[in-house]
Design a binder for these strands. Sequence first.
RNA 1: CGGGCCGUAGCGCAGCCUGGUUAGCGCGCCUGACUGGGGGUCAGGAGGUCGGGAGUUCAAAUCUCCCCGGCCCGACCA
Length: 573
Amino acid sequence: MRWSNAFIPTLREDPADAEAVSHRLLVRAGYVRQLMSGVYSLLPLGFRVVAKISGILREEMDRIGAQEFRLPALHPAALWQRSGRWEHMGEEMFRLQDRKGADVGLGMTHEEVFANLAAELRSYKQLPQIWYQIQTKFRDEPRPKSGVLRVREFTMKDSYSLDVDEQGLDAAFTRHFEAYRRIFSRCGVEALAVEASSGAMGGNESIEFMVRSDAGEDDVASCEACGYAANVEKATSSLVAVEDEAGPEAPEKFATPGVHSIDELAAFEAGAVPTRQLKSLVYVLDGEVRLLVLRGDHPLSEQKLLDGTGAREARPASEEEIRAALGAGAGSLGAVGVSAIPVYADLALQGRSNLFTGANEDGFHLRGVDLTRDVEVEKWLDLREVSAGAPCPLCDAPLRVERAIEVGHIFKLGTRYSEVFGAEVLDETSAKRPIVMGSYGIGLERAMAAIVERCHDENGIVWPVAVAPYEVVISVVKPKDVESLEAANSLYESLVAEGVEVLLDDRNERPGVKFKDADLIGIPYRVTVGPRGLAEGKLEWKARRGGESRDLDLHKAAGSIVETVLEERSRSL
RNA sequence: CGGGCCGUAGCGCAGCCUGGUUAGCGCGCCUGACUGGGGGUCAGGAGGUCGGGAGUUCAAAUCUCCCCGGCCCGACCA
């Protein structure tokens, strides 16, 4: 491609509304443009990067024996009503009506459509199967953000495994796990595989692939010592045995005027450090009021609460609901003697005694509380969100907690969809068995943005060769110089003939502009052709990453460039 | 859905509070010249429903109301 004919609208300044690095750079370097909130156009450069990622995805899906489909984006309501997700997905699903007034939804994911097709499978002999597609998904996100990281319309590679039994699913899951490792490694980013909550997808096991970045929306706990890694929605820490000093025979009430928080009670002279306090939270789970108790310094993880109770919705109780349930306001709540509403306590509190908590009377607290003796705990649950430094559940080393972008997610779905859609096969004994499914996704534009988050410097993007829109850019310092232009053209032709992806910067621009643009758009290698070098029969070869450069002999340049590029390509296979 | 903020040329912004010539600036763009190894210089030029509508006023980018769109924080989110 000749730059003079290309549409690469680079901007000299950062776009005003871009915060995240990937957002800023992808817009500024001319890869994407916003059409409306959460909806982006991929410009030629962006499209080429996504096409590179798609290529890697197809190769790795092929490698595990997957077959590519192309499924509709337009789905009849009836399909989603069968799985119950027409209602369940709520406002996140884009909905419309056709001319006959029939309800139609835009596909957010394709479990339903694939399960519906899988109903044509008859025999275990036809299994296992892995089906996939690379297609546009629509989700009416409440808050699109960070450029192309969280959007309402995006491309996803979604695959689905179909097996007769759990062992088959385990095998398909493992194959995907390995394929995903290869995919992200080939894309040039380190993706951490972490245990995750399955959330609304159902199923019993899921692993997320996370790329560390401040622009991410998830927190990941990881242990350098043993390799444990989990989304904080799922992560636990080991329980440290605590020796509480002997307390009184029974809880003692004492006045705590003006004390309404853990911190205030810690600062109160008759108070106690947060680790000796109980945090009491009133929550409404699917309409039922519950009292949750955690250690004073432990934050509640709402996702764990949902996962642990099986509730679909959790919200903090209102001031009125709290008063109705416990007779006091938030800030003076406690679980001692509470029997009207069930108490769920965090596992970290088991066996603790001599603790401080609210007295369910405004302005009063209790000390000397013994969980076992004084509180009627209905369920002990893992409710706390782990924080940095907490001991690893496997080896007790301190955990790290970091922001990360979820670039891939693999799920064991089970038979939820196959049962509903009648996707059943006969096994060896002629018994009908629902197909056991798995579901595996990767967001392409998000992956592109995650790569940029990891691969950039102050001058712009620094693409890994495997996903770069072009592998080499030839910058012609003085295009009006006939000798320069001829040398550049002939190099360009030779490289193109060898299958190298080259961008020839033949624009009538100052060299500084060309260098800045080349750095900005992040092409891995740059060849500079100018009178100064040509006078000595040389071209300059420069790597974007690291910046090292060397002179190439004009007549041997093409060969050595081809060699380098091919070597770099093979490295990511 | 709650809170904060923004919409003026392709991009980045000023002007608005305190209404009043022809709405400015930088970058980019077009023409020409000089130039050419990290966003060059000079000369000339094009480009605006001031997000939309209604209102107040002799007069609205500026004041008022309604609407639309966008960004950030939170809630939410396979």
